Amino acid sequence: MEYSIVVVDDHILIAEALSGIIQKFRQYHVLYEVENGKMLIEKFRHPKNIPDIVLLDINMPHMDGFETAKWLTQYHPAILILALSMQDEEETLIKMVRYGAKGYLLKNVRPPELEKALDAVVQKGYYYPDWITHKLLLNLSSGKEQNMAIQLNERELVFLQYAASELTYKEIGEKMFCSPRTVESYRDGLFEKFGQKTRIGLVIYALKQGIIKL
């Protein structure tokens, strides 16, 4: 089966380079490139322009990747979104996951990893970079929900919900009326309970187990 792809990136040379690389992959072909989310919405007026996968840059003028992912998830939930970014920040990844991205890829990867990411999104439903813990990937790849024997208190649940936002730890502390040190203690306690090592690990694990909802 062949999958259709649209590249959304305001850097025209990068978009064309990505298209050229993807056209060499056996299972994929590029329908077109656009420079931002608004242009994508215009293209979607014609059903023939709706792809299976959207490669989505995050930082774009007029309508950025966050807004575009949110729109795609609302109006075209069947489309697989693979985010493209120069940033390896957990907060950015969390926000894209919240808005419906099924994968996250840094722009400095080599073509084989791009193809690997596309294959993973199509076959497994997700793709996350190497700096996400291996244990998190095992949790994500499990087809069955695990029974939560872990006991969480109210403050930990509140922290988890805020952790799924783009707020910094300092801003979370302000929302919870506590010090940054206390916020870190909630985080560290959840690291131990969930067996995770990163904020995105906590969030995606909690989402998968149904502890929090976006």
Rank of each mutant, 00 (worst) to 15 (best):
residue 171 E to A: 15
residue 15 A to V: 07
residue 36 N to E: 04
residue 181 R to S: 13
residue 208 K to T: 03
residue 156 E to V: 02
residue 22 I to V: 14
residue 132 I to W: 12
residue 143 G to D: 12
residue 166 E to T: 09
residue 165 S to G: 10
residue 30 V to Y: 05
residue 42 E to F: 07
residue 111 P to D: 07
residue 128 Y to S: 00
residue 71 W to A: 02
residue 86 M to I: 13
residue 11 H to W: 03
residue 78 A to D: 15
residue 86 M to W: 07
residue 121 V to K: 12
residue 4 S to W: 07
residue 33 E to H: 10
residue 123 Q to S: 14
residue 106 L to S: 05
residue 150 I to F: 09
residue 41 I to H: 06
residue 184 E to Q: 13
residue 1 M to G: 06
residue 123 Q to P: 00
residue 114 L to W: 00
residue 49 N to C: 06
residue 136 L to K: 10
residue 30 V to S: 04
residue 91 E to P: 00
residue 37 G to C: 05
residue 65 G to R: 13
residue 64 D to M: 11
residue 13 L to R: 12
residue 16 E to H: 13
residue 114 L to G: 03
residue 100 G to N: 11
residue 27 Q to W: 03
residue 51 P to I: 10
residue 122 V to S: 03
residue 129 P to I: 02
residue 107 K to L: 05
residue 31 L to Q: 08
residue 48 K to G: 09
residue 89 E to Y: 03
residue 152 L to A: 02
residue 52 D to A: 09
residue 73 T to M: 13
residue 58 I to H: 04
residue 132 I to P: 03
residue 46 H to F: 07
residue 142 S to V: 00
residue 48 K to H: 08
residue 145 E to W: 02
residue 177 F to K: 14
residue 175 K to R: 15
residue 26 R to Y: 03
residue 187 R to V: 00
residue 68 T to V: 02
residue 173 G to Y: 07
residue 85 S to W: 09
residue 15 A to C: 11
residue 7 V to I: 15
residue 161 Q to S: 13
residue 165 S to H: 08
residue 1 M to T: 09
residue 127 Y to C: 04
residue 56 L to M: 15
residue 155 R to D: 10
residue 146 Q to K: 14
residue 112 P to M: 10
residue 27 Q to G: 02
residue 127 Y to T: 01
residue 166 E to D: 15
residue 29 H to R: 15
residue 99 Y to N: 15
residue 53 I to Y: 04
residue 42 E to A: 08
residue 197 K to G: 12
residue 68 T to D: 02
residue 40 L to P: 08
residue 118 L to R: 11
residue 162 Y to V: 05
residue 199 R to H: 01
residue 138 L to Q: 14
residue 132 I to D: 05
residue 189 G to C: 01
residue 114 L to P: 00
residue 213 K to H: 10
residue 109 V to Q: 12
residue 186 Y to S: 09
residue 94 I to L: 10
residue 7 V to A: 10
residue 198 T to H: 11
residue 39 M to A: 15
residue 122 V to Q: 10
residue 35 E to I: 01
residue 2 E to I: 04
residue 192 E to L: 11
residue 108 N to F: 07
residue 181 R to V: 10
residue 145 E to C: 03
residue 75 Y to L: 09
residue 203 V to F: 06
residue 58 I to N: 04
residue 162 Y to G: 01
